[in-house]
């Protein structure tokens, strides 16, 4: 028997895929096929093959991030302590939101309570508006939805696939600086866990740098979950500590509501916005738009990608990557219940 025949025997007795694992993999594929309907759960806020854009940026950003990595231990407390100074314009808006929040009664959301969020989402390919109703427990352990047949399905959330989790808000600090540290600590955890495979799916794209990821984390938390007015003010306050965040005077959400917005522009010239009501400071929705024409550059040598030199990705200035509106959010009695 030659060496190849011997090798063919090595681990030949590895058991076949379990029915459960095969079923789960198939379900993920079917879910992906139905993506336009349920894209919110899985797709990053990116259009068409724009995942590639993210992947390329990832390679570049990783290269930049390396010296930082070897220079210091990201787990060290003072790595987190290196918080940029608060930007006055953003901090001022957050402060007014905080004053508004303090006029309302303090609200504590129990960990096991069910929360309901209704979102309008403009689909990036069809431009249809989806009306999404989701339920989560405040601790991020359970989620529920209503199927086309009207039945309520409750399922356990896999923490590896649900980032940010609703649990991120549970017991989060209510002061701006504390919230900023909480946000960056979570971003650093996500970056580290993605490297080791501890996170399989996340709506926080870490490939465009730590600050854009921090902004995205705040945006996703506001978009997906029930957020108390004080937490909302603290999240706005945290944005003041993220370099590059500005206040935009007028923005429009997916429901056509106008407001002010916090914005940041990422390395691919996509501007993301967190839109809020200019009087009540209530979060309204979010959007992401290409601010310049963007053509996908070839990948750096050695980077795996499905770059096609004959058809590089191109996004025209003004292409909308994400547009949604949070229509309703409340603590409710149980899954499937409306406020």
């Amino acid at each position: 028997m030659d060496e190849l025949h011997m090798l063919a025997e090595l681990r030949r007795d590895t058991p076949p895929i379990r029915t459960g694992a095969s079923g789960a993999a198939r379900a993920r594929l079917l879910e992906e096929m139905a993506a336009p309907r349920r894209s919110r759960l899985r797709l990053r806020p990116i259009i068409l093959r724009a995942g590639v854009v993210a992947a390329l940026a990832s390679a570049i950003i990783t290269a930049i991030a390396v010296p930082q990595d070897t220079g210091g231990d990201p787990g060290r407390p003072d790595a987190v302590a290196a918080l940029a100074g608060a930007q006055p314009a953003v901090a001022a808006v957050a402060e007014r939101a905080r004053t508004a929040a303090e006029k309302q009664s303090t609200e504590k959301v129990p960990a096991d309570s069910w929360t309901y969020v209704r979102t309008l989402q403009r689909e990036t390919e069809s431009h249809d508006l989806s009306d999404l109703r989701d339920w989560y427990t405040a601790d991020g352990r359970w989620t529920a939805g209503i199927g086309n047949d009207g039945r309520v399905t409750v399922s356990e959330i896999d923490p590896k696939r649900d980032v940010p989790s609703a649990a991120f808000l549970l017991g989060a600090p209510t002061d701006p600086e504390g919230m900023a540290r909480h946000v960056y600590a979570e971003v650093d955890r996500v970056i580290a866990a993605e490297r080791t495979g501890g996170i399989r799916a996340s709506t926080i794209d870490t490939s465009r740098g730590r600050d854009v990821a921090a902004f995205t984390l705040v945006k996703e938390a506001l978009k997906r979950y029930y957020v108390t007015p004080r937490q909302q003010a603290a999240l706005y306050g945290a944005l003041a500590y993220i370099p590059g965040v500005t206040v935009i005077e007028d923005a429009e959400d997916a429901a056509g509501r106008h407001g002010q917005a916090f914005g940041i522009i990422d390395p691919q010239s996509v501007r993301s916005e967190i839109i809020f009501d200019r009087r009540t400071y209530r979060y309204l929705g979010s959007s992401s738009v290409f601010t310049k024409d963007y053509t996908e550059p070839p990948p750096p040598p050695g980077v795996d990608s499905d770059y096609d030199p004959d058809n590089p990705l191109h996004f025209a200035k003004g292409t909308v990557v994400e547009l949604n509106a949070k229509m309703d959010a409340a603590v409710v009695d149980g899954p499937g219940q409306r406020p």
Partner: peptide
């Protein structure tokens, strides 16, 4: 799915293979 899973499982174990095989078909689909 069976042959691809078996190949992956032989290299990195069935636990990792369960996930990788799902990712493989998602990537292929895209």
């Amino acid at each position: 799915v069976e042959v691809i899973h078996h190949y992956i499982a032989r290299r990195v174990g069935t636990d990792a293979a369960d996930d990788i095989v799902a990712e493989t078909f998602l990537a292929a689909f895209r």
